[in-house]
Amino acid sequence: MDVCVRLALWLLWGLLLHQGQSLSHSHSEKATGTSSGANSEESTAAEFCRIDKPLCHSEDEKLSFEAVRNIHKLMDDDANGDVDVEESDEFLREDLNYHDPTVKHSTFHGEDKLISVEDLWKAWKSSEVYNWTVDEVVQWLITYVELPQYEETFRKLQLSGHAMPRLAVTNTTMTGTVLKMTDRSHRQKLQLKALDTVLFGPPLLTRHNHLKDFMLVVSIVIGVGGCWFAYIQNRYSKEHMKKMMKDLEGLHRAEQSLHDLQERLHKAQEEHRTVEVEKVHLEKKLRDEINLAKQEAQRLKELREGTENERSRQKYAEEELEQVREALRKAEKELESHSSWYAPEALQKWLQLTHEVEVQYYNIKKQNAEKQLLVAKEGAEKIKKKRNTLFGTFHVAHSSSLDDVDHKILTAKQALSEVTAALRERLHRWQQIEILCGFQIVNNPGIHSLVAALNIDPSWMGSTRPNPAHFIMTDDVDDMDEEIVSPLSMQSPSLQSSVRQRLTEPQHGLGS
């Protein structure tokens, strides 16, 4: 029994001894940790006062410096006190997940390849973020970090730009207890964004957000305005092209109309020559008939004078003969009235020469109109080809070629109108001259024959008349068809009918 009691006491004593040793060891460790923490804080404070003595007594600045020092320690893998190029590049790629850190790398180092804690602190103090207000930090939280649900907490804590380094380091107390961020992804996102802002300055999105919006609005307005302008120009170009094509079609119709007119003019001239020949034959025939009538009257007179026994018949025959003579005298007077005045042959040749010289100047004017028309046609064809290209319509709308071609078409039409008026006036004037003179002027042997017949020096006439060419005029020349008939041919039928009527009546009387 005593043995059992003793054994229990030994065990209890051993447990108490072991517990005492454990408590003693724990207290010694706590004392050691407290001592090392105090030494670390003293070291940080001493270093901060050495680097930035004016701010070393500010608790907030001291906390920010400690956060900057921890960031530098995080980047300094070899713990030599300086962050070199390789260490910063590795940190950007692995910790901040930048696949192309060239720009960030140059911004961080600049011309200094080794970055110490002092360099990093001075860079942070010179950053724009260091002077941010609470509102600017909240704006950064909303737009860049995209965590607007913590806006009220940031405003309540009055977190300005000075506190940004403390957000950039992993601090459970700061993010969990103070900021009350329960979501781990939110804490990590805030820490990475803050670290990027401390090292490289304010984000471009935050700094140029309004400018970007303004430029976007301006670009949209310019784009819409450009599209509207292109649409208006395209519609104007199509309308202008439609008008130009309509004018061009009018020129083609006028060309065909003048071609038909020239054919009718040539045909009328041929008919005029035929009528002139018929007139000469008719006059000769009338003279022959008059002579035959005179001979017949003389023969009847002689027969009736030789027959004294038939006085009654003779008297009747003499009366008939007197009627025939009276008819012959009237026919002769009618014929003489139409051919009583004949212009000198020299006057006819001079008038024919005048007509040919006028035709020369008319042909020159006509050729100029043809050239203008050809230029207008070529310009229209070029515009047609340009319209078939990809940007042809837009190019035509913004060039002056369309207006130039339109002006050329209008100029050609005006020139053709002048040529039309000149042709109309010339035909009418020479027709009236032919009526008054009674001989042909338009139809003549040609300028060379006339110059030779009148003994004129050929050098006075200049160049010879160009051959009539096919040219274009407007449709108002169609009503000239009825005026192209020679006035002499219009007189011939009346002359034929009057003479024939007077010759036929006596012959019928003789026949009876």
Rank of each mutant, 00 (worst) to 15 (best):
L96S: 09
D78T: 15
D78N: 02
G81R: 13
E90R: 04
F91T: 15
E90A: 01
F65L: 01
V85A: 05
R69F: 13
N80D: 05
D77C: 06
D84C: 06
D84P: 15
D89C: 04
K73R: 07
Y98A: 04
D82T: 13
K73N: 00
L63H: 00
F91E: 15
Y98G: 05
S88G: 07
V68G: 06
E94S: 12
R69T: 14
D84E: 08
D95A: 07
F91L: 10
F91H: 12
D84N: 05
N97E: 00
N80I: 11
R93L: 10
E66P: 00
E87M: 14
Y98R: 05
M75P: 12
D76S: 14
K73E: 02
E90I: 02
R93G: 10
L96C: 04
D78L: 15
I71N: 03
M75C: 11
R69D: 08
L63N: 00
K73W: 03
D89W: 02
S64N: 05
S64L: 02
E87K: 10
L63Y: 00
L92I: 03
R93E: 13
R69C: 03
D89G: 03
D84W: 13
V83Q: 13
L92M: 06
R69M: 02
A67Y: 06
V85K: 14
R69A: 04
V68F: 13
S88T: 00
D95M: 06
I71R: 02
S64E: 02
F65C: 10
Y98W: 03
V83S: 13
F65T: 13
D82H: 03
H72G: 12
V68Y: 10
V83H: 13
F65A: 13
A67N: 08
E90G: 04
F91C: 15
R93Q: 12
L63E: 00
V85P: 08
D84V: 10
V68E: 06
S88E: 07
L96G: 08
A79Y: 11
F65Q: 13
S64M: 14
V68C: 11
M75L: 06
L74T: 10
R93K: 04
D84F: 12
D77Q: 09
D84R: 13
E87H: 14
E90V: 00
F65D: 12
V85I: 14
D76L: 13
E90D: 00
E66H: 14
V85C: 11
E87W: 14
S64Q: 15
A79K: 12
L74P: 03
N97T: 01
F91P: 13
G81C: 11
H72I: 03
E94V: 01
A79W: 08
N80T: 03
L92G: 11
D76W: 15
D76E: 14
D77A: 03
F91A: 13
H72Q: 08
A67D: 06
N80V: 10
V85H: 12
V85N: 14
L96P: 09
D77R: 04
L74W: 13
A67V: 02
E94Q: 14
F91N: 15
M75Q: 02
D77I: 11
D77L: 12
M75D: 10
Y98H: 10
E90H: 07
E87G: 11
E66V: 01
L74H: 08
A79Q: 08
E86I: 08
A67S: 06
S64G: 00
N97A: 02
S88A: 03
N97L: 01
M75K: 01
S88W: 05
K73D: 04
A67C: 15
R69V: 07
H72N: 03
M75R: 06
M75E: 09
L92W: 09
E86D: 02
E66K: 00
